[in-house]
Design a protein around this nucleic acid. Sequence first.
DNA 1: CATGAATGAGTGTTCATTCAT
DNA 2: CATGAATGAACACTCATTCAT
Lengths: 230, 230, 230, 230
Amino acid sequence: MARRSSDPARVREKILKLAMEEFARTGFDGARVDRIAERSKVSKNMLYYYFKSKEGLFVAALERMYEEVRDQQRELSVRAHDPILAMKQLVEHTFQALESNPNAIRLMNEENKQRGRFLRKSKRIRDLYNPLVETISFILERGRVEGVFRPGLDSAVVYMTLSSLCYHYLSNRYTLEIALGKDLASAASRKAWVEHVGNIVLLYCTAEVPSTTAAKTAVMRQRATSDADA
Amino acid sequence: MARRSSDPARVREKILKLAMEEFARTGFDGARVDRIAERSKVSKNMLYYYFKSKEGLFVAALERMYEEVRDQQRELSVRAHDPILAMKQLVEHTFQALESNPNAIRLMNEENKQRGRFLRKSKRIRDLYNPLVETISFILERGRVEGVFRPGLDSAVVYMTLSSLCYHYLSNRYTLEIALGKDLASAASRKAWVEHVGNIVLLYCTAEVPSTTAAKTAVMRQRATSDADA
Amino acid sequence: MARRSSDPARVREKILKLAMEEFARTGFDGARVDRIAERSKVSKNMLYYYFKSKEGLFVAALERMYEEVRDQQRELSVRAHDPILAMKQLVEHTFQALESNPNAIRLMNEENKQRGRFLRKSKRIRDLYNPLVETISFILERGRVEGVFRPGLDSAVVYMTLSSLCYHYLSNRYTLEIALGKDLASAASRKAWVEHVGNIVLLYCTAEVPSTTAAKTAVMRQRATSDADA
Amino acid sequence: MARRSSDPARVREKILKLAMEEFARTGFDGARVDRIAERSKVSKNMLYYYFKSKEGLFVAALERMYEEVRDQQRELSVRAHDPILAMKQLVEHTFQALESNPNAIRLMNEENKQRGRFLRKSKRIRDLYNPLVETISFILERGRVEGVFRPGLDSAVVYMTLSSLCYHYLSNRYTLEIALGKDLASAASRKAWVEHVGNIVLLYCTAEVPSTTAAKTAVMRQRATSDADA
DNA sequence: CATGAATGAGTGTTCATTCAT
DNA sequence: CATGAATGAACACTCATTCAT
């Protein structure tokens, strides 16, 4: 009913959404406050009223992004299945999450480019634990108990391994294509890579444990197929 | 006959060097033409005379960076040794090369952020083949012949695997540290990761080939040690 | 029936106090309405409710300042003593009043800078008579009757003389220090100046009246001492 | 012949002139860079090209003003005449200089309001000696030798006395008019004040020296006339 | 009386780029 | 080849003021 736009929380939200897009698309330096204001149909000063500065807006956008990622990973937890399947699904899910969230990748890259300077300003982000590592721990433990994974595996190492392989493919697509002369955007190419990542992670988790022969063989059979596609 | 001003090629070189630094440090949008001019002690007009525009300068800097990377990889070719050792050395060398060349990482990230927009403008870069993939092919072939690596391995996949794992650790250090709550900058941490990458790549190359037992066992022994460190 | 919020008059007062400070410190243009609101812990709207505009607030602050100055001068009236002593005390008091009231100086300067534009808007200020001039009249008259001051002295001229000499020393301290290369902030320097002003005013009031020899000699004795200090 | 405006020095000069006006009229905070740029018909960036910042421009304007004042006082030195006449002329000249230079007064006031913060930034200003004090020294010395002035006079005190009395009349005209209910702008009023200042300064210089009776009597005769006018 | 949210014109400053010499 | 001076659009940010509740 009011002439002025209704709900402050809604306005904040709209600004934040558009800010995430702008910052992801152009980086912190490339982002234009004017553009964010214009697109969110809010006058520039409101933007400063809510977020105090361009930096403040960026930090808020980062925080929101981290929350979204965490929530997404929380709801899609794959604790149910058998360890090997669970791990494969986890890889797939991680890849898909990153793929469907290009803004997250770009914001993280931006943050790394700035040497974590914005991260350091946000208590909220530091307190956002990553449920993925926990999920991995859970799967690793079950696998160990069931005798398909070897003992002594570090969930952090597994996390870094699979996320590096997923993230880099998506993040560095253009320079990889130059280096390899291949198209990485095709569905086939992506599918093959996800399978490759799953294989390699499982290989690492099952390696050298004698009784895993059956599992490993299954894994390798899949890999053989997918590698041929790539 | 010679003028006192240092010859044009040298000037170009100096500009390029400072431009690489500036672009790597601050990204394309954050980079300031004035700063590059000032630091290279060349008037701004010279900069435009040689490179036509900020974009032109960025492309030239990218080209130069790719050449340097290629040359570095060429001279350190590890074709000599036995396949398993060669692969391990290749991983180490790749990591070290990236680590000692943070500008290269940042420029590549920048280029990916811009969706390859500058890359596309440079014929020279597209023509720059990457000797690393060739080296990997060579090692894989020798490994296959010697019976330590399984057949059917794709050098591109191996390349992507090892470079993802090395690159991501260095490039995304800050967000990884947030996600894991660990310090990735320590020498111990880096060493453990390089060994982990070596292990995982070798695991992939030797997997499921029955006769590789000896090789695999050797690999795993090392891994056991390094994993304990991490 | 009473609301918990402190009564309007008190709020007005608080705002006014903080406004005087802000306007004195930074001038009209430098003053920030937000800052005044924040410091007086009153919402900006209240400020506009009470004073209508930034100008209105400034005028109110000016008025209040003039009232304070007048009240201060009223309560410290020195009508009691013998004329020469009274005049000396008046000078001292004037200097001290200005010195302890730097805001008054700055607000007056601001007002003069604006060519009296705000003064003209305030009937109240125009109606505020200055008791100082009256006091001077009183002292001059008594001095004339007692034969120590010469006749025909204009209280306005005496007022302007002594206030110029006191005011300027305090108001233009920084540029005077540049011009003279001296420190005017020291206690010794200030004391010497006040004595000098007293001497000069008395010299003017007693000049050339033959029978004043005694008074003049006394004055000069003091001057000799204080001039030596300066 | 050139399309772009001819002489850099001329451009700088034009900017400076307009800047002095703007700063004098509105003070530092009230001054608008845009306005200065527009009036001097120079694009805003040129202004920053030459003076680096609004502050830089203000400091430059202050410097220029001090130079002008010094030059003006230098050329009009009154060292020639007999001491009493010389002093009277000096007072008149000082008053006229300030009166014809309202920008100087306003810039000095501004500088004092800012507590000398700009002055401190300028080595040039600190090095600009004030020839006025020297002239006063000269006159005082001659007066002492001729026996019309008493010995032990401090040129700095005389300088402060006369400049306070001249400056304040002009600088604080509006608040003085309020305090006194008089018009200070009229020619008669100004003339009377200048004579008063002359009288008072001479009184101070000649006071209590027995043999000066003649001189003093002359002075007082003039004063009697002028005081009647006021 | 009192408040949080909103406005829009402006505020000092910077940028990549070009011109005349 | 080389330079100092110039451009103009943009940039992040701020201000006094007002509206709806």
